[in-house]
Structure formats: C-alpha cells, structure tokens
Design a protein around this nucleic acid. Structure first.
Lengths: 225, 225
DNA sequence: GTGCATTTGTGACCGTTTTCACTAATGCGC
DNA sequence: GCGCATTAGTGAAAACGGTCACAAATGCAC
C-alpha cells in the first residue's frame, strides 16, 4: 500500500476533511458530495476531488462519496487506525493544557507520559499521570513505546530536549517551543508557534488599517487551512 | 507605505527571522549575512534574501544586514511597533495557558480581557484578570479597544463566539477551536489546530514504517515553517 | 588605487499547488 | 430503455513559491 506519494498540501487537509466527515456521519448523512464536503471544510470542491483522488477512486459519479467508507479510507491513509502514544516534555502552562486536551484522545492519540526537568514539577499528578524526570526518557520511551514527542519547554532548552527524545528513539516531534530545532534525517519535525500566528494577524490588521486610511475601506483579509 | 504586496509565505517567515535577529542583537551582533540568518531560521539563504528584498533594499553587499536596523524594519512591516490588545474567549485549559503565556507579552501583544459563558468561570482571576461574561463582549471590546480575538472554546460554539466578536467590532481572529469558522470579508481569520499537527505527524510516521518494512530504512521526513 | 573576497539583489528556471473546464459515470423519473 | 440532472475524476492552464546562478556593489589589504 501507499504507492504514489500524496502531496504534502493534501496531507495537511485530510484531517480537516476527516473532522467534517465525522460530524456528517454523526448527523446521519450516508453520502456526501465534494461540493458539500468542501463547504464544511472551507475549501473549494475541485480541491476536495483532487485531494481525494490521491487516495483512490472512492466516489460514485452522480452520487458522491459514501461517508462511512470515506472516513475509513482517510483514517487508514492518515494512519489513524492504529493507536499512537504521545509523550509531553515540559509541564508548564501549555504542557498542562495539552496533557488535559480532549481532542487528542478523541483522535486516537494517547498521552502516556509527562516529563520535566524541574524538581518541583516532578511527581506532580496531571490528568492522572505522574510527571517524571526527563533524565528517565530512554526508559520511559521503551516502557510505553512512545511514538510522538511534544515539546512544551522554554525555547532555550528545546533543542536539547529534542536531542534527548531522538536519542531515546522518538522519530516524530511536535515543537511548541519558540525556537528552531533541527533534527537528523529520518526524524519528522513539525512546529507550532502561537505568537507567530498573532504576528501574522497583526500584519494583515495593520495593512487593513493602512488601506482603509488611503482608500474608502477596501479591506484585505486572509484565511488558511 | 506598504506599496506592493508582500507574499503570504514571506509574511509567515518574517516573525521567524525577527526572533532570530533579536537573539543575535542580544548576543551583540551588529551585522548579519543572509547565510547566517538563514541558518538561524532554518531556511536557505536565497529565500532570506528574496523575503527581505520585499521589504526594501536594507542590506549592504559584501557586508550583510545591520541587525538593529533590520529588526526595526521587520517590526515595522509586521506592525509590531504598535501595541496590540488581545481578548481570549474560553477559559478552559488552553485559554488558561494562553492567558499566562509569556511569549505574547514579549512580542507586544497584551491580553486585556478574558471572557467565558460558564457561570462557574466568570469571576475567576487568571493571571490578574477577572474572567467576564461573554455577553458583555461589546462593552469590553469598546472599553479596551480590542484588536484581536482568540477563540479557545469547544468547537461547538466557536462560530457563535466568532460572530459575537465580529459583531462587537473585532476584525482579526485566531481560532484554536477544532471547527470551521467562517467570517465575512474584512475579517482576518487564522486557525491553529493542535490535533491536526499530530495527525500529519502520524501520516509521515506511518509512511516511514511502511517504507522501512519494504526497503532497508529509507526514511521520509518533513519539516515546515 | 587595484585586486580580491564577500555578499546582496534579482532575473530565469523549475516544481508544486490551485483552479478551470470538460468528460464519463451514475441514478432517477417516466 | 431513454433522457436528464448530478457529480466524480482528470488533463491542461495558471498562479505561486522556491532555487539557482550571476551581476553589481562593497570593504579590505596592500
């Protein structure tokens, strides 16, 4: 399976389609057209069809897609038919929030361990898990067969923590720390920076103000996946 | 100012350059080459030069860019020379974390108000701010001249909250709720979905596993801004 | 002042992503 | 079975973004 490569842009949208599809299934819909799936996902229908065509020909012309079947195919493609174990490093405000985040569990991601380097936090119980010493990472990763590491530490130690994770065998890392983290080939790395998003909004907000000052109120807006 | 449009992709990288530049300035660097800024930002130097060229010709051939001056220009371009007021709707785990997040304040974003619809949360003090009733949004927005709204509610009420924000005059929204939120023209909307990132990681992790099973371990990795 | 090493700024090229427009299925009404 | 409305799938075109490679500018050594 997994013959031809699925475009990166498509991969980024599959989770969005999946959520829309699940909601539709819960609402009792049996089939869905590319048009209505597009509407529920905030994209246009041509994109939906192209994206889904990368998974195979799962639609029926004149009818649409079978919701349940498409959910299954998307989940299979994303690898969500298996259980994923997640470890969170850094139990500050954000780490706390993520440890308690219901959205992860709902989608098949189980937070199995929390680590920190702060003696005051080690031992604390968060969402039923005891915070452990980051020094025990190798053992913890082995114990729980951790697949994905999430970095919620301050930026200053993010690279160090990532190195420890990789050393311990983790091959996928999601970085929330505001710092550049590099990883060797074979390790997947993604970054989410909360303040970057605000700065981008500020840019467009400022531009709107500038345009409004010149013209009569030609507002420029933008949205993304 | 702001003549020709700056590409969206460039706007997304400016905050990254900015952070790297600020770190360099703190380390005492007076000038920086596109090569070293690229290294510190995780991109290649050609991209840095193209990106910066959109702001104007602020470099000196043979020398590089003046760090302090470039910081000023990037901040100006992003609109960070002004103070931005932020309101957070939904004081759950994530809302709590964001209200306490130092990274916002450091970059000129001040959280000036917290709102929720839950009677048990209204009145609670978070990071020195009293949580107020979301019904008072119009008054709160006027009082504090709120520029940016952040949605941290459950997905089910995200659209409703966004509508309230827009009604109250907010024109830039950052949505953390796992739901599609649509907004009229003139309102900027960005979305961050924590679980989407994990799902993307799962996809690549699964593909690595599939490839490793077939070949000898040709791992496919990926990274993004 | 000359020559050289450095580094920006940018035009040209290339790959990816999006959009368009059309064809080919399919189901339904009759 | 026929015709029609609907909708997936897809090649072609356009837009966008990234990379390359080089000319132009600069500072420095001497």
């Amino acid at each position: 399976m997994s013959k031809r490569p699925i475009p990166e842009a498509t991969v980024g949208r599959l989770p969005v389609y999946l959520r829309a599809l699940v909601e539709m299934a819960e609402a009792g819909a049996a089939t869905v057209s590319s048009e209505s799936l597009a509407g529920a996902s905030g994209v246009n229908s041509a994109k939906v069809r192209k994206d889904l065509s990368h998974l195979g020909s799962y639609g029926t012309r004149g009818v649409g897609y079978d919701v349940a079947y498409l959910i299954h195919q998307v989940r299979r493609e994303l690898g969500l038919t298996q259980h994923w174990t997640v470890l969170i490093a850094g139990v500050g405000n954000l780490g706390h929030a993520l440890a308690n985040y219901k959205g992860f569990t709902e989608r098949g991601f189980e937070v199995v361990a929390l680590v920190d380097s702060d003696r005051n936090k080690i031992g604390e119980i968060v969402n039923g898990l005891r915070v452990r010493d980051i020094a025990d990472l190798p053992r913890i990763v082995r114990e729980h067969d951790v697949a994905i590491g999430v970095i919620c530490t301050p930026g200053s130690v993010a690279q160090e923590v990532a190195d420890d994770m990789i050393e311990a065998g983790i091959r996928s890392i999601l970085n929330f720390a505001p710092a550049l983290v590099s990883a060797p080939k074979g390790v997947s790395m993604r970054k989410v920076d909360l303040s970057v998003e605000l700065q981008i909004l500020a840019f467009y907000e400022q531009r709107k103000a500038a345009l409004a000052a010149v013209k009569g109120g030609k507002a420029a807006d933008m949205a993304r996946a």
